[in-house]
């Protein structure tokens, strides 16, 4: 036993060191992405100018550009990427389905309906984002209420109820948009996803929601591992299965809704990032969740910078960028034989 102990301790230390190194590397990548995003923009600034402006918030035009335009926009992009990636990882664990994404149980169509209703009935009041936030939460809650009544396999029912609600809400949205053609362009642009005219207060609201949601999620990381073993086994090892599922669904929905509040509907990030992270770190959620947060944030900061500065085309919706980068990359990862590597 002592030999095993020593060997195990070495393996344990190696693993912890590796995890810490990966964590620090991901933090460094996120900071680098921020630096790239701050330097590039409609006018390019030298890194030293950016640095100077960061240290002197009241220092003229470059400070205004950095502090009031670029920085809040990049923080918003990071929160959106992080929120969607974490939400996707939680939904995949909850539904035990690698194809689940943050929108899978109706959040996107609920958000879409909320946005359309706000734009149709109270246009010009800047209520699209809050209405989308509420719509996303309401749709998931409704799907949960429908699934809860079924004692057998409620997660499968949740998936089906979410799908049925999506179809219904999309139909209502389309009908309202056709009735009121003025709002068509606004809503279409919103559904493509984009980070426009972000203020610090909007970023603050989303950050608070995500922080609360993260506090809810952190004590459940190991419970998520147990849920991967199936409801019966999780129950057997002492998990309050229904309550845990509710907390996880609530946390994931808040992450999604906060991201939708900032950026509209951005696809693919929530599906792809958790898969990449699992290849990097294995499926244990103590690592998947924090790594998804960092990788999602980094990816979205870079995608936003590209969306803003794609030279021949001018600005492109960020949702298109994530799809254009994410789609082929995901196909490449799927086609490549196994292994825990990014490339």
């Amino acid at each position: 036993m002592t030999g095993l102990d020593a060997k195990h301790r070495q393996v344990g230390i190696y693993l912890r060191t590796r995890t810490t190194l990966v964590f620090l590397l991901l933090v460094a990548l996120l900071l680098a992405a921020f630096a790239i995003g701050l330097v590039h923009g409609s006018t390019k600034m030298a890194l030293s100018t950016v640095w100077h402006a960061m240290l002197h918030p009241a220092g003229g035009i470059s400070s205004v550009i950095v502090w009031q335009i670029r920085f809040p926009r990049l923080v918003a992009a990071a929160l959106v990427g992080a929120g969607l990636a974490v939400s996707g990882a939680v939904m995949q664990a909850l539904l035990q389905n690698p194809l689940a994404d943050p929108y899978v149980v109706g959040a996107s169509s609920g958000a879409g309906l909320g946005a359309v209703v706000a734009e149709t009935f109270v246009p010009g009041m800047a209520l699209v984002a809050p209405a989308a936030f509420l719509g996303a939460l309401a749709a998931v809650f409704l799907a949960w209420m429908l699934a809860r009544a079924r004692s057998r396999s409620p997660m499968l029912t949740l998936l089906l109820a979410g799908y049925a609600l999506s179809v219904l809400f999309s139909a209502i949205s389309t009908y309202l948009m056709l009735q009121n053609q003025r709002s068509l362009t606004t809503i279409f642009a919103w559904e493509l996803g984009g980070i426009h005219g972000i203020t610090w207060s909007a970023v603050g609201v989303a950050a608070c929601i995500m922080a609360a949601s993260a506090l809810m999620l952190i004590p459940y990381l190991k419970t998520m591992n147990a849920l991967l073993l199936g409801d019966d086994v999780a129950h057997g090892v002492g998990v309050a299965v229904r309550r845990s599922q509710f907390v996880l669904l609530l946390s994931a929905s808040l992450f999604t809704a906060a991201a939708v509040y900032l950026s509209g509907l951005i696809g693919f990030v929530g599906l792809v990032i958790p898969h990449l992270v699992r290849r990097l770190s294995g499926p244990e959620h103590e690592r998947v969740i924090p790594f998804s947060f960092l990788v999602g944030a980094t990816f979205m900061v870079l995608a936003d910078t590209v969306a803003e500065r794609l030279p021949p085309l001018g600005t492109v919706p960020i949702g298109l960028i994530t799809a254009f980068i994410g789609g082929p990359y995901f196909l490449y990862v799927l086609a490549r034989p196994g292994g825990r590597r990014f490339f």
Partner: peptide, 9 residues
């Protein structure tokens, strides 16, 4: 029997 959805150690 148990078939986890992901490749747990």
């Amino acid at each position: 029997a148990m078939r986890p959805a992901f490749e747990l150690e």
